[in-house]
C-alpha cells in the first residue's frame, strides 16, 4: 500500500514536472508574446495559379508549398497547376496594399488587425480591366493561413484553365 502510494506520488510528480516545463516556459515567455499580440504588420504572398484539366497531376516545385491544398478534393477536377505569377505585399495596419497581375486583375489587401493566432484582413479583387469589383470581403484567418479565390476562366497564347489566387498572410515584425 505504502509502496503503491509512493510510486503514485512519484509518477504524479513526474507527470506534473513534464507538464510544468513547457507551461512554465510558456508562462515566462508569454509576457512578451502577449505584449506583442496586437498585429500591426503582416506579410502576404499572392500566387496566381492556373489550374488546368489536362496534365499528369505533377505539382511543380514552385507550387510545392501548396501541395496539400491542391490535393484537396476541392481541386480534384484539375490535373495540372502552373504558377503564373507571385507577388508579395507588406501590410501595415489599416493600410491598403495593392498589386496588379498579368491577367489584369487588381488585388488589394488591408490588414484590419488580429491577435496572437489570427489575422483579420480586407480583400478586394477587381476584374481584368480593373473597372469592377469581383469580390470584396473581410475575413480572418490563422496566422500564416491561406485563402483561395477561383477567379474564373483564364486563357493566354499557350494555356487555358481556371485562374486561382492563393493568398497567404502572416504577421510580421
Amino acid at each position: 500500500m505504502t509502496h503503491r502510494k509512493t510510486t503514485s506520488r512519484w509518477l504524479a510528480s513526474m507527470v506534473a514536472s513534464a507538464l510544468a516545463v513547457p507551461l512554465v516556459g510558456a508562462a515566462v515567455f508569454a509576457v512578451p508574446a502577449v505584449a506583442d499580440a496586437a498585429v500591426t504588420k503582416a506579410t502576404c504572398q499572392v500566387h496566381a495559379v492556373l489550374a488546368s484539366k489536362e496534365g499528369d497531376g505533377t505539382i511543380p516545385a514552385d507550387l510545392e508549398f501548396l501541395r496539400s491544398t491542391l490535393a484537396n478534393d476541392e481541386f480534384a477536377a484539375y490535373k495540372s497547376f502552373t504558377l503564373l505569377e507571385k507577388k508579395s505585399l507588406k501590410l501595415a495596419l489599416d493600410t491598403k496594399g495593392e498589386s496588379t497581375f498579368g491577367s489584369g486583375h487588381k488585388l488589394g489587401l488591408t490588414l484590419l488587425g488580429g491577435d496572437d493566432t489570427r489575422l483579420k484582413l480586407q480583400l478586394d479583387l477587381s476584374n481584368r480591366d480593373g473597372t469592377k469589383s469581383l469580390v470584396s470581403t473581410a475575413y480572418s484567418i490563422e496566422d500564416n493561413g491561406l485563402l483561395m479565390i477561383g477567379a474564373g476562366a483564364f486563357t493566354d497564347a499557350s494555356r487555358s484553365g481556371k485562374l486561382f489566387f492563393a493568398i497567404q498572410c502572416a504577421r510580421a515584425g
Binding site: S68, T69, K86, S88, K90, T137, Y139, N144, G145, L146
Partner: peptide
C-alpha cells in the same frame, strides 16, 4: 510598409512557410 494604397513591388523576397490548413472565417462578403 505599404502606405495608403501602395502598389507593391512586383518581385518581393519573403517566402512564407507552408500555409496552415484551416478555413477562413468570412465576416462579410460582397
Amino acid at each position: 510598409v505599404a502606405d495608403r494604397t501602395t502598389p507593391a513591388p512586383a518581385s518581393e523576397d519573403a517566402t512564407l512557410p507552408q500555409p496552415r490548413p484551416a478555413d477562413a472565417e468570412i465576416h462579410g462578403i460582397e
